[in-house]
């Protein structure tokens, strides 16, 4: 319309940069999910058994459950600060498609909360005596799976952003949607142990990722509009 109006791409990049900037200024919010992941994963051998053989059996599940819980913990601060200070209203009143702005926030959030967990996971896997041949699969499935968890979690957070004391509600909304990801991810890892072909599992995870990338931000956008109402 007007010559100096910002393009949607510029608004997308601007929102992503802003969220990353905020995350780096609130360092504890980056560190929290990451440290939580380390603690949960480290407690399993202490609580169940230090026996390397049995640890190797449960390692895939332990890693995925820890990643899921860490992602759930991290979700809480996705929109709440913006809601409190009114930035969320400004976001909703932009003439750019809300889909892209929400996507920018989701990507920014995953980069600071999901990616560190994925990157540290081989180290935790080593600690759990993880089967050597499955490292690559673990890394890839987590790399594909954690963004799905973030995108789905975003819907739940968006729905509950105006409510106080929403921890449990959030879990009840988010966890059922996350379970298929958990199942596919852990199955894929277990199947490498049986030297079965992986393409199917990875294809399912990929389909979930593409599906949630294209649909979840739309749902989050609508949910945000409802929540500020």
């Amino acid at each position: 319309m007007k010559a100096d109006e910002s393009s949607t791409y510029q608004a997308f990049v601007g929102t992503l940069k802003r969220d990353l900037l905020i995350a780096f200024k609130r360092k504890n919010e980056i560190a929290n999910p990451f440290i939580f992941f380390l603690i949960v994963a480290a407690l399993f051998p202490i609580g169940i058994t230090p026996d390397p053989v049995r640890l190797a059996e449960i390692a895939a599940g332990v890693l995925w459950i820890s990643a899921l819980l860490a992602s759930l913990l991290a979700m809480d601060n996705l929109y709440s600060a913006d809601f409190e200070d009114g930035s969320l209203e400004q976001l909703l009143l932009s003439h750019h498609p809300l889909y892209f702005l929400v996507l920018a926030k989701n990507i920014g959030h995953w980069l600071v909360s999901g990616l560190p967990v994925v990157l540290i996971s081989p180290l935790i896997a080593y600690m759990l005596n993880f089967p050597r041949e499955s490292y690559m699969v673990l890394f890839i499935t987590l790399l594909m799976g954690t963004p799905i968890l973030s995108l789905l979690g975003s819907i739940g957070v968006a729905l509950t952003v105006g409510l106080g004391g929403r921890g449990l509600v959030l879990a009840v909304i988010t966890l059922p949607m996350s379970v298929p990801v958990l199942i596919t991810g852990t199955l894929a890892i277990q199947e490498t142990g049986n030297s079965a072909p992986l393409v199917g599992y990875l294809a399912i995870l990929g389909a979930m990722l593409v599906g949630s990338l294209s649909l979840a931000p739309l749902a989050s956008a609508v949910a945000l509009r409802i929540s500020v109402n």
Binding site: R18, L21, I22, K25, R26, A81, D82, E84, D85, G86, S87, E89, Q90, L93
Partner: peptide, 14 residues
Amino acid sequence: LTYIGHRVGVSKVL
């Protein structure tokens, strides 16, 4: 439209 609400839309950490 430019809107300034009760919550002023200023992030405190920035």
